[in-house]
Each structure stands twice: as structure tokens, then as C-alpha cells.
Design a protein around this nucleic acid. Structure first.
Lengths: 249, 249
DNA sequence: ACTTGTCAAATGGTCTGACCAACTGACCGC
DNA sequence: GCGGTCAGTTGGTCAGACCATTTGACAAGT
């Protein structure tokens, strides 16, 4: 054994990790305000100085913006830091195909690993959706739903990854389309598809979860491509892995 | 003039700037110990919490190392310092697990879709590796290999993200470990694992490709965790999807 | 001479409670 | 409506205290 040097994990780091996780997961959406320092300290069971230290760490990392007298805000994560330049090169359809590929695999694995708390979290989000009717809030909840599924795999990198894929929709190209397409009716469809995904995961049925997620993003693909130049969708385009290939072994 | 909003410069930032300046200037040499928090607070005429906030900011920036009960030490500045915040959070091991998950799925699909030109491209890269012996060049080729596999799926978003995941290794945390671990021998291992992946894809064998890729990144995980704090690897940690789950209809 | 155990000082980690300054939003008078 | 006022909320800072860990000196044992 390499004789590892153990280091006491200081409180402020644990708090920072926890908050970072919540942000990645979409619990605190970009632009939203975090609870006040005093509230956080109370809820986390630590003192305010400790919370402040954690917040300052996150501020230095560039994930939070602290405004005196006003509050603490989640800052839009700069993917530009990692990818200088190109963000909106690919079309929305290509993005949706990539999400279908990654997230269907994620959903499949989530169905294997899901604990009951995880299902509860999904239910909370879906419940919020039903009490919400403005478009903006729905997008944030949509993101939270997808991030929460990724969170089941218990890997912060993956959660961020899925979140980033979602956030790529935030570009002029995509937004303009969305305005044409998103309405009460399509949000209703989206919600129903989410419920199907949730049920498959809750039933611990990996294959159903994969199919439901792929179907969900394929539907979104269809909704977009209808009003878009591209031809609707050849099955081979969204089905990265044909089902028959799965029967092997 | 565009009427910029003025921001109150908080004390902890002023203190941090001042300390950073002193370090840059060589007043506090690399490896040396700073005065105790209480002393700093006294000399700077501020309270200890404020000094602590500044120190934590500098610690997050990677310029200081705080050791409990011992003191505050100046850390060697990594010239790279690429990503100001977002990237260096998760540990290298978590990153490798995420890559194992995503890229094994990618490899599986690549084996289904690969055309002969794609295989040729992989071969070109592997050939270059054999004519190369410096470490830096090998990292670049490693990246090209993984990106080339993603490219087989013919989706620019996926290629970018696989590349991005790879690039997350560029952070001080990871680099320092890599220096200890990467040598001619480990590069040889890496190369052989790459060849196995290439062969599986060339044979159009999805399951073998998935396994080979997962094995490759699991080996890397093992190489890192040996010299790292974490316990080596429980199979469940890297095997996101247990093989038995695949035998289902 | 070398190791081991002990202990006190130094140092960072955290908490409590307090006060100040900036912001926000409701209310009021015009 | 419009602008001013004011109280509540929120972050910024401070003071002082106690705890846990580290460190090094020193005594005791081998």
C-alpha cells in the first residue's frame, strides 16, 4: 500500500462540494438566487463563517456571483473556458442526436442503480412541473429532470457533461426555433414523455428506460425537424445502437 | 463611456491581491511558510476571518497550501493554469470513470458503423505512435485516437465532448500525478490497449469494442489509483453497466 | 546513542454573536 | 404616475472564544 497521506477534509470544502453538486444537478438553476447565507448556515448545520468560506471558494471558481445586499447568484458556466470558440456550430438536430446517444445510455444505467431517494427527487421535479405554467420555468425544470437522472450515476463529471449538452440549446440558432415550437401543447407532450422515463427507472427496467429516453429525444428531434429544413428522421439517424445489436451475447 | 457599474472591492479580495503580489514578487518564496493567520490579521489591520477568506481564495487558486496545525505554504505555480475554475474540481479518478462510461458506449457503436476509411484513420494514428517517443507527442496522439473513434459516429457534438473530457486532464491536480505515472512502460501498455480497441472495431465486434475500451480506461484508472489515495478499484466502480445486464432480451 | 512517550506551545478550524453598509420593495406624499 | 422615504433583508466585517492537529523539546526507557 502506498501509504496514503490522509487529509482532513475541511468543512468549507465539503459545503462547497455539496453546493457545486446541487448547481450541476440543476437544483439551483443558472441565474437563480441561492438562499441567504444565514439560511444556508442554518440548513447545513454549520456557522455562517464556514458557509462564507465555501461561497468564496465557489466565487473564485467562477460559479457564483455574490452581490452585496442582494444575494448570491448562480453564474452561467463558461464552457468557453474549456472550448475556446465554437459553441453553436452544430445544428440543433445534431445536438439532439448526441443527447439521444449519451442520455439513453445514462438512463439505462440509472435504472440499474436508482435508489428510492433518486426516484423521489424525480417525482419532486415532475410535481413542480404540474404547478408551473410559464415557459421559462419549464425549461429550468426540464434541465433539472435530465440532470437528476444523470446524478443517479453518482459521477459529477457526467452530471456536468449532461448539463452542458442541455445548455448548448442556449444559442441564438436554437432559441429562435424553440420560440416557434414550444407551446403549451409541446410542453405537455414533453412532460408525458418524462413521466414514462421516470416510470421505467422506478421499475428498474434498464431497457425500458433506454427506450423511453431515446424516444423522448427522438420526439423532440421530430418536433424540431418538422419546422426545420432537414427531412424528418430516418430511424437510423436517432437509433445509434439498433435494438437487435443488444440481443447479442 | 459605457457607464460601467462600480463594485465595492471587498476586503478579502484586496488582501488576496496583496498577498498574491508579494508571492509573485518573491517576498514569500515557493515552499516558504507565511506568517500565521493571527499575525497576518494583526499586521494587515483586519480581522482573522477576513484573512482566512483571502487565504482560502488563494488556496482555491492553487497558490497556497494550508496545512492544519502547521502553517500556510507557498505552492509552486503551475504555468499551465488553463481553466480558471470549472475544470479542476473532480478528481482524476472520477473523470476516468466518466470517460469509461461514455467512451465504451461510443466504441460499441463505432464498431457497428465503422467503414474501412475509419479503420485506416485509426491505423495512421497508431503508426505515428510507433515512430514517436517523446511524452508530449504521445499525449496528443492519445487524444487523436479517442477523438477518431468518436468521429466514426459522425456527430460533431459527440466528437467535441469526447475531446473535452480528454482535455479535462489538463489541470494541475492531474498533471502532477501524471508526471509520476507516465513513463515509457505505461505508454507501451497504453499503446497495446489501443491496438486491442482498434482490432475490435475493425472486426465489427461491438461487444469486444466496448469491453476493450472499458478495459483500457480501467487500466488507466488502476495506474493512477495505485499512486493515489483512493483504493484501487472495485469492479462496480468502473463497470457502470454490469455485463450481465446486457444479456437481457 | 537511539528510541519512545509526554506535554505544552503554535497553528489552523470552527463557532457565536454582534454591528455596519448596501440593496430591495412597500408605502407615502406630491 | 412619479419620486422620496424607510424598514427589512442580505452580505461584509469584526471580536473573542474554544477545539483539534501539528510540532518540537524534553524526559524516560532501551
Amino acid at each position: 500500500m502506498p501509504l496514503e497521506a490522509i487529509e482532513p477534509r475541511r468543512l468549507y470544502r465539503q459545503i462547497a462540494d455539496q453546493l457545486r453538486h446541487l448547481i450541476d444537478q440543476g437544483e439551483y438553476a443558472v441565474g437563480s438566487r441561492l438562499p441567504a447565507e444565514r439560511v444556508l448556515a442554518d440548513r447545513l448545520g454549520v456557522s455562517r463563517p464556514t458557509v462564507r468560506e465555501a461561497l468564496i471558494a465557489l466565487e473564485v471558481e467562477g460559479r457564483l456571483k455574490i452581490r452585496v445586499g442582494s444575494g448570491i447568484y448562480v453564474v452561467e458556466q463558461q464552457p468557453a473556458a474549456v472550448v475556446p470558440g465554437s459553441a453553436a456550430i452544430e445544428g440543433p438536430l445534431e445536438l439532439l442526436r448526441a443527447r439521444a446517444f449519451v442520455e439513453s445510455a445514462v438512463a439505462e444505467e440509472a435504472a440499474v442503480r436508482a435508489r428510492s431517494e433518486d426516484i423521489e427527487r424525480l417525482d419532486e421535479i415532475l410535481l413542480e412541473v404540474e404547478h408551473q405554467h410559464s415557459g421559462d420555468g419549464l425549461i429550468a425544470l426540464d434541465r433539472r429532470f435530465h440532470a437528476a437522472i444523470a446524478a443517479i450515476l453518482d459521477n459529477a463529471v457526467l452530471v456536468r457533461f449532461v448539463g452542458q449538452l442541455f445548455d448548448l440549446r442556449i444559442n441564438p440558432y436554437f432559441e429562435q426555433l424553440a420560440r416557434h415550437i414550444e407551446n403549451a401543447s409541446t410542453w405537455k407532450e414533453t412532460h408525458l414523455e418524462h413521466v414514462v422515463i421516470r416510470d421505467a427507472i422506478a421499475a428498474r427496467d434498464p431497457l425500458a428506460a433506454r427506450t423511453a429516453m431515446r424516444n423522448h429525444l427522438r420526439q423532440a428531434h421530430g418536433r424540431f425537424s418538422r419546422d426545420f429544413g432537414e427531412p424528418p428522421l430516418a430511424a437510423a439517424e436517432t437509433d445509434f445502437r439498433p435494438v437487435r445489436a443488444r440481443v447479442v451475447a
